[in-house]
Structures are given as C-alpha cells and as structure tokens.
C-alpha cells in the first residue's frame, strides 16, 4: 500500500489532495516546533541595544532614501519603456501582486533543499507559484496545504528555471545540482558568457516572471569537442539564511502600485 502511494506520488503526482489534507494535522506540530525558533529570534531582536537600533535606523533610512531616488528614476524609465514598447506594438507586464511569507523553523528531509512557508491555499497560494526574496529568485511552491506550503529551492536538483544573461540576452536553463550552485544547461561553447555576468529569469515557460535576478556566473569551462559549455552560477538569493520570502502572482497587477503613472497602457 505504501509502495503504491510512493509510485503514485512520484509518477503521477496523484497524492496532492491527500498531502494537503494531512498537512492540516502536521501544521500544529510544525507551528509549535517553530515557536522557540521564531521566539528566540524575536528575543534577540528585542534585546538589541538602543545604540544598535539607532545605527540600524540610520542605515535603513539612508538605504530607503537611495532606493526611493532610484525608484523615481525607474518609474520614469518604466513609462518610457512602456511607451517605446507601445510603439513597437508589444507589451510586457511590469510588477506583480506579492505577499510576504515567513519560513517555518522546521526540519524537512535531510539535504532535500525545501522550505516550509506559513501561507497556504487560504492565502491564495497555488502549486508552481514563484517565490523570491529581496535578492533574487528563491524557488517555487511544490506542495500546498490550507495553512502551509512547501517550496523547492532553485538549488534542488529537480528544479529547472528558464534564464537569460542580462548583458546580451543569451537564453539557458538553470538547474540545481549537488552543491549550493546552479549550472546552466544548453549554453553553446561559443556563446558569449563571462564570469561575473548577471543571470536573470527570462519568463519563458510562463511560470516565473521575467527580469528577476537569479545569480552571477562564477565559472565557465569550455571543453573542446563538447557542444555545450559548463557554466556555474552562484544564486543571488540568500537561500540558506533568509527568514522571509515573497510569493508572487505573475498574472495579477499589484494593487498598491496602481497609482504610479502608467498612462498609455491603461488607456486602451
């Protein structure tokens, strides 16, 4: 019976409903276990000294100012980009609805590169939903329960992500591997990929929105006689240390940023 389930799960993904139902039972356990972990973090936060807080505040304010300034520029650029694309009669979506999710401090299978999030179908989370953090693409949702969901990290060997080189738009597939790095598949040996190139999501495949940073090229090995180069990419998302992630809804426009002037695209 268990063996049947195993095969059903691996081959046909038929057990998702069962898994979702049982995850309701597992949630209290996971919640209780994550309490001391999250509580410890809160305690650490509440005992930071006033001086540290002020320094932190100062730093964040400076960062905020910097980001705001850049955002102003981006808003102008976005409108300009839209207008140009309008002229070319193609349109891209800029911005998606997003939701912040906390990681539950619980263990999963050893070395399985998965994380458990505290948002589920009750919050609108769906299978295959992209997950990002402040620095780049983190992974995608693989199991959803009513209260929790499990996300597979991009370094998981099962995970493949359509990407492109930011500098020149060369497309490839980034797959997880054994270590903490990603590798690019299907990069021709003569392709112009250099160490230090920024890799971003390409939006092909329709699951991940385009333009999110994925990582930086760390190593390029070209072997004569082999049609594809071996490219290693370090993920830019802080996969191992992150506490909060963003869940994205690529099809939905953000509600909060609707006030940004986007004249041409809304006019039609």
């Amino acid at each position: 019976m268990a063996a049947t389930l195993l095969i059903a799960d691996q081959r046909y993904r038929a057990t998702e409903a069962l898994r979702s139902a049982i995850s309701v039972l597992a949630y209290p356990i996971q919640y209780v276990v994550s309490l001391p972990v999250n509580g410890g973090r809160m305690l650490m936060e509440s005992v930071t000294t006033r001086k540290e807080m002020m320094a932190d505040n100062e730093r964040l304010r400076a960062q905020n100012l910097l980001l705001k300034t850049r955002l102003q520029k981006f808003a102008a650029l976005e409108t300009e980009n839209m207008r140009l694309r309008e002229l070319l009669e193609s349109s891209i979506e800029v911005g998606e609805r997003a939701l912040v999710a906390d990681l539950l401090g619980v263990e999963t299978e050893p070395s399985s590169r998965q994380v458990v999030l505290n948002k589920g179908t009750r919050h609108g989370v769906y299978l295959g939903q992209p997950v990002v953090d402040s620095d780049g693409v983190t992974g995608q949702i693989t199991h959803v329960g009513p209260f929790t969901s499990t996300a597979m990290l991009i370094t998981n060997p099962k995970h493949a992500l359509p990407v492109q080189v930011n500098r020149n738009g060369i497309r490839a597939i980034a797959t997880g591997g054994d270590g903490d790095a990603l590798s690019l598949s299907f990069v021709p040996t003569n392709a112009d990929v250099r160490v230090g190139d920024l890799i971003i999501s390409s939006g092909l495949g329709g699951r991940f929105p385009a333009g999110y940073p994925v990582g930086e090229v760390k190593q390029v090995v070209r072997t004569p006689g082999v049609p594809f180069a071996k490219v290693t990419v370090m993920p830019s998302a802080r996969l191992a240390r992150t506490q909060q992630v963003l869940l994205l809804w690529p099809e939905e426009r953000p509600r909060s940023v609707a006030g940004l002037n986007r004249p041409a695209i809304n006019a039609e």
Partner: peptide, 14 residues
C-alpha cells in the same frame, strides 16, 4: 508514517 511524510515533505509513502 504518512503524517511524517507530509511534515518532512518527503516522497509520499516513504
């Protein structure tokens, strides 16, 4: 075992 599978996000039935 099933509960454990779900909790650890292991292959269902392992």
């Amino acid at each position: 075992g099933l509960l454990l599978d779900v909790m650890l996000s292991a292959p269902m039935g392992q």
